[in-house]
């Protein structure tokens, strides 16, 4: 199975991809296991019999034995995360292109969190008499580190070959827009994402209430959590001689700027959200080689880009930008 995967990858014209699989399936999981294992081996003798696992405010109010913690974290976070990583990498040919990369990110992010919790728990309990003295600081760096290791995995997995797909519904048949040499054209469509707008509204309300009653930390946290929702709530696609841009209209955020020269083909597709990783802004052109903005199932614009990358966005009128972009590409 391993040999098959490796020769498959190289056969697809990605010589040098074997080392990526080695790092993905060997080095990264080894790090996830070795770091907490080393910490446990070093501090096992100097931690109290129970370790704090839950805090209310800064006071610990829940605890577990070291063995209990290791078993729980391994079963809930580390093993499922690593299983997702290995499964995603080995099954990449049966998944849509780019999906293995997103699965690898999620898997290593979850496993990384587990590794951090174990490592940090034994480290912070070293030389303590009792779990009641444990302080609760230190989760934030673990989240950052886990995002980092997840992004590394996604980057390594981005060139894994995916299932062959046939994107075109009628892309090849759509005639290019007739555009004289002195003519310029711009296509613009604004999409709203009511579900995520609703979520953001609830978040804003919660933030307001928390700030009003003086829970400013929770309030600021709620506010920060609504920002991604707000930025995705209303989005505008613009296609013109410079390429395609995707921007949030509620916040000054530009999701994508794709140069015309990078677009190999534009086509009309029926977007299947699960094939692009779900709803909302999914993936990353730089890291995963695949990105999509999905508000619903149904018509969308698909761009096949240089370096085997792809981009999709759900819009109500994908025919016009497809015809425009194919005309602009032909004129360029």
């Amino acid at each position: 199975m391993f040999d098959d995967t490796f020769t498959g990858v190289e056969g697809a014209g990605n010589a040098g991809s074997a080392w990526r699989s080695v790092v993905l399936l060997g080095v990264l999981p080894a790090v996830i296991v070795a770091v907490p294992a080393a910490a446990i081996a070093k501090y096992r003798g100097s931690v109290p019999s129970r370790l704090a696992t839950h805090w209310s405010g800064s006071e610990p109010d829940g605890s577990m034995t070291l063995t209990g913690l290791i078993v729980t974290v391994s079963l809930v976070l580390i093993l499922p995360g690593l299983a997702a990583l290995v499964g995603g990498v080995l099954a990449s040919r049966r998944l849509p292109q780019g999906m293995a990369s997103m699965v690898a990110f999620t898997g290593l992010f979850i496993a990384g969190l587990g590794a951090w919790i174990l490592t940090w728990s034994v480290f912070s309990h070293r030389n303590l008499e009792s779990w009641t003295e444990a302080s609760s600081v230190g989760v934030f760096p673990g989240v950052i580190a886990s995002i980092g290791i997840g992004a590394a995995a996604a980057w390594l997995a981005r060139t894994l070959p995916g299932a062959p797909d046939s994107p075109q519904r009628e892309g090849d048949q759509l005639p290019a827009l007739e555009l004289a040499s002195a003519e310029r054209a711009v296509f613009v469509e604004t999409m709203t994402f009511p579900f995520i707008m609703g979520l953001a509204a609830v978040g804003l309300l919660a933030a307001g209430v928390m700030l009003f009653i003086g829970e400013w930390q929770t309030g600021v946290f709620c506010l920060l959590m609504t920002l991604p929702g707000l930025s995705m709530g209303r989005v505008r696609v613009q296609a013109d001689r410079n390429g395609v841009t995707l921007r949030s209209t509620l916040l000054p955020i530009r999701y994508n700027k794709i140069d015309l020269a990078d677009i190999e083909q534009a086509s009309v597709i029926d977007v299947e959200p699960m094939k692009w990783g779900g709803w909302g802004y999914r993936g990353s052109l730089k890291i995963a080689g695949t990105a999509a903005f999905v508000t619903r199932k149904g018509p969308g614009l698909r761009l096949d880009l240089t370096k085997n990358r792809r981009f999709a966005v759900t819009i109500n009128d994908p025919e016009t930008p497809t015809r425009l972009l194919n005309a602009l590409r032909a004129n360029a």
Binding site: A182, E183, R184, A185
Partner: peptide, 9 residues
């Protein structure tokens, strides 16, 4: 919306 202009018009 498709907006077009002809610079030679």
């Amino acid at each position: 919306m498709l907006l077009r202009v002809d610079h030679e018009s």
